[in-house]
């Protein structure tokens, strides 16, 4: 990532574009929630949009798109453990013994 004034100005344009996309996606997610597409479909769509928005924030605002390797490794470890954590409700509800 360049640090000259020109580079920064270029970055700022990107940031504003990402910002506009984020606003648009917020509108979309609210709009979609009023359309009934079946319970599961609504949940999936809302989460997909949220993930896209979060990825945009992480990639551009948090500069993850051009970050150092060490940060990627750190986040990779966190991601693995996060998956472990998300495994927890599954562990709870998979074939429980009913007494």
């Amino acid at each position: 990532m360049g640090d000259s004034v020109e580079d920064i100005k270029k970055h700022v344009r990107t940031y504003v574009m990402v910002f506009v996309v984020l606003l648009f996606l917020t509108g979309v997610t609210v709009g979609i929630s009023y359309v009934d597409m079946g319970h599961t479909m609504n949940i999936v769509l809302a989460l997909v949009i949220a993930t896209i928005k979060a990825s945009l924030v992480a990639a551009y605002f948090m500069h993850l798109i051009s970050e150092k390797k060490l940060i990627y490794y750190t986040l990779l470890i966190a991601a693995l453990f996060f998956i472990g954590l998300m495994f927890l409700p599954t562990g709870q509800s998979l074939d429980p013994i009913h007494l």
């Binding site: 997610t29 609210v30 929630s33 949940i43 809302a46 989460l47 949220a50 979060a54």
Partner: peptide, 11 residues
């Protein structure tokens, strides 16, 4: 918040 918003308000 981007996750909280749909999870709590919309779903």
């Amino acid at each position: 918040w981007i996750f909280l918003f749909p999870v709590l308000y919309l779903l």
